[in-house]
Nucleic acid binder design. Structure first.
Lengths: 118, 118
DNA sequence: CACGTATATGCCTCATAAGGTATATACTCT
DNA sequence: AGAGTATATACCTTATGAGGCATATACGTG
């Protein structure tokens, strides 16, 4: 039995969820967007479904998958006690992501004209 | 290299982090509070430290560990796109739109015309 | 009914990480 | 220096889960 947290430890599953965050998608859509083999997509979706992260509805031969928020809310709730550590200085995340070379997938607010020093 | 998300997939590590959320603790403190073998605690702390979740300072023979917020902020940031699913107001709106079959306000490119079926 | 498409599942292999136990290192005090 | 305390690491075993591939099931269309 996989826990809520270990489910989203899988990068492919996070990618699927992020895709679904934007809009409902069929298995084929996901397969194509993420360029991964269809059995992999189906398996990950099964795990996500059984853990309550997604639900599916039938549309002819396709299954359309969409987000169910509850498990993600659980994670959000777990984070609550830590928020006091960053409610003060919010740009620590940006520095951290810079350091670890993560790609921010919100291209909008890339750089703030805050004049950060190196 | 373990990812930020897989690190907190481990229940013991989440327990350690939750403990540290309240206050700085020594290895012995953690060992005692969580009633787990000391080598386990040290190993988990090592993982957490290398991933930037915690940092330690030396106090005589002890090491006092405390939270570093950055990786947790990263997770918080990853959750952002999903929040609209549980912000009560938007969730209700969404259900309403689904029920009434309104056009999705979700970004772009729903289905690309593969065949001309509906 | 036969066929194409869409998705799910079963089987196998392999890597990784957690737990346990023993031991090493570091620091303190007498 | 020696003993005691606090923490880290090394080694081994084992379980679990992801990926690849083949195949099964479901549905729709001609």
């Amino acid at each position: 039995m996989e826990s809520t947290f270990s489910i989203i430890a899988e990068p492919s599953r996070r990618a699927i969820l992020s895709l679904l965050a934007a809009a409902e998608q069929s298995v084929g859509d996901i397969e194509e967007h993420l360029r991964m083999p269809q059995p992999s997509v189906s398996k990950h979706l099964r795990v996500l479904r059984e853990a309550g992260f997604v639900e599916s509805r039938v549309d002819a031969q396709r299954r359309l998958y969409r987000i169910r928020p509850e498990p993600l809310m659980e994670i959000d709730a777990w984070l609550a006690p830590f928020r006091r550590y960053w409610s003060a200085h919010l740009d620590a995340l940006e520095r951290h992501l810079d350091r670890t070379g993560q790609a921010p997938r919100t291209p909008a607010a890339r750089r703030k004209p805050k004049g950060k020093k190196r």
